[in-house]
Amino acid sequence: MRLLTATGHTIRHSPRLATGLALLALMILLAVLSPVLVDAIGNGKDPLELATYERWLVPSSDHLLGTDQFGRDVLAMVISATSVSLQIGAIAGVISTVVGVIVAFVAGYKGGWVDNVLSTFTGILLVIPTFPLLIALSAYAKNVSLFQVGVMISIFSWPFAAKTIRSQVLSLRSRPYVDLARVSKARDLEIIVTELLPNLLPFIGVGFASSALGAIFGLVGLEVIGLGPGGVIDLGQIIFNAINTGALTLGAWPMFVVPIVLLTVLFAALNMINIGLEEVYNPRLRGVAGE
């Protein structure tokens, strides 16, 4: 209940956050409806199947965004690719946030040598150049699934979440209300979950949004150099195809432009959420705690 009112309050006070959430909601809606939309576009046929239509059709009322080099409907491709991009964001976002939060809480709350070991490990992962390693990993692991790529990307993105959240845990764990909980016989886990976690929700939200963003663009990066997972089309792969086939010179500009526009919107939406959360919650948390 408190959570809902707080959320409502927060959104009302930050147009940026509201816009970001609205844009993201639209894209999620698009992704959720993608099977239906693709069916509707196909009108009995599968618009994503090779050679369903003629190749390189220019945009028309039948094919709003034209067709690609294999005779697939570009609009249908873009819609289902959006869903794939969001999926990778969600997969990697959830994994890195969960791992990051657990590591951060254990390290920050326990302190001592546990913290030293975990922080050193996190620190090492943070300084490893991520993208080249990701390239190496994907080149090595042929025919990886979307989920596997998500896991691979998470390996490199959880340390960011862990690092930000740990510093927050450190600052919260010495609060008097934690001491009060301890003299009220609360156990460590109970303190973490009921005293610390609620106050960290905005930071966890920020961690999630950044990891998701990183994963979406990481996948685009892999696709653009031809190392994406097999069997799925994400926005990056459409761009890769457009570049590779010289689609722009054939008049098939939507194949290049539309995915980029969608990615830009997604980037903007997640960033607005990120900045909005930070903007609203930092002063607000301070305001509530130390007013």
């Binding site: 008097p176 106050n199 705690a289």
Partner: peptide
């Protein structure tokens, strides 16, 4: 500190 003794969340 009467301010910090309460978890602002509750």
């Amino acid at each position: 500190d009467p301010y910090a003794i309460f978890n602002p969340f509750y």
